[in-house]
Amino acid sequence: MFTGIIETLGKVTRIETEQQNINFYVESSISDQLKIDQSVSHNGVCLTVVAIQAQTHKVTAIQETLAKSNLGLLKVGDLINLERCTVAGGRLDGHIVQGHVDQTATCVAIEDQNGSWLFTFEYQKNLQDNVTVEKGSVTVNGISLTVVNSQDSRFSVAIIPYTIEYTNLQSVKVGDTINIEFDIIGKYVAKILDARA
């Protein structure tokens, strides 16, 4: 389990294709502290560390992961949000994040609000339990954020300067693809209501 509080940024240094899988080599300030078989969130996707060398670790994304996330769009030099799993008994500063990306979304607008930014994302409403609620939680590229302006297939999030500086939202532009994980509690509620209907 994760919280959506990004620990550090990593940089993709190498990408290898192996059959239908893709191996990513990520350089970061925490790579040398990781362990083989450890779960780490990469842009909100829970991936297993399979190799470590100095300040670089290697993870593998399989076809299912590549189909549901933006990892297949990564290029060498891209920044990636990293978070290690939550320690039992630790603070839950964000919200409950599983690291299971539901789908991707497209950034359709970025509004400078003179000290903060309003990012708007649009997604394909293809599943009934993929919902956002006003002032509820959503995970964008692994970042726990609060929803504003929740609509049927789009939502906005207000971003403070700290988040811009310490996450890869600093490089997101209109037209870019991001990963979203909808709030697990909201998904369960939607599923229950749908079953009763």
Rank of each mutant, 00 (worst) to 15 (best):
K68G: 01
A158T: 14
I52N: 13
K187M: 04
V97K: 00
T48Y: 06
D194Y: 10
Y123R: 03
Q33L: 11
E165G: 10
L118V: 04
N141W: 08
N126E: 15
T132H: 05
V45E: 01
F121T: 04
Y162G: 05
T86L: 12
K75M: 03
H42R: 02
V133A: 12
T86A: 10
V87N: 13
N21Y: 05
K135L: 12
V108Y: 15
I5R: 01
L193N: 03
V148Q: 04
S153N: 13
T167Y: 00
F119S: 03
V133T: 14
C107N: 13
T104S: 11
Q151F: 15
N114R: 09
I30R: 06
V45D: 01
D112S: 14
N21K: 08
H95N: 07
L145S: 05
T139S: 02
G4Y: 06
S156E: 07
S28V: 00
Q38D: 07
Q33Y: 09
I180A: 08
K173F: 14
Q98Y: 06
G99K: 06
S156Q: 07
T17C: 10
A197G: 15
H95D: 09
V174R: 04
M1P: 11
A109Y: 11
F24N: 00
D32V: 10
D176H: 07
R84P: 09
L193M: 09
I143V: 10
L118N: 03
V147N: 00
E165S: 13
I36A: 12
Q98C: 06
V49E: 06
S116E: 10
Q103M: 08
V174S: 06
K173T: 13
G136I: 04
Q124N: 15
I184L: 15
Q19D: 14
V147S: 01
N168S: 10
T56Y: 01
V59G: 01
S31F: 00
D37Q: 06
L82Q: 00
V45Q: 01
D32Y: 10
T65W: 00
H42W: 01
G186R: 10
R14T: 12
I192K: 14
M1S: 13
N43V: 11
Q128R: 14
A88Y: 09
V174G: 03
E134C: 09
T13S: 08
T132C: 13
T132D: 05
N141F: 08
A88D: 10
T163G: 14
D102G: 08
T177R: 05
I184H: 11
T104I: 11
G115W: 12
T146N: 04
L9T: 03
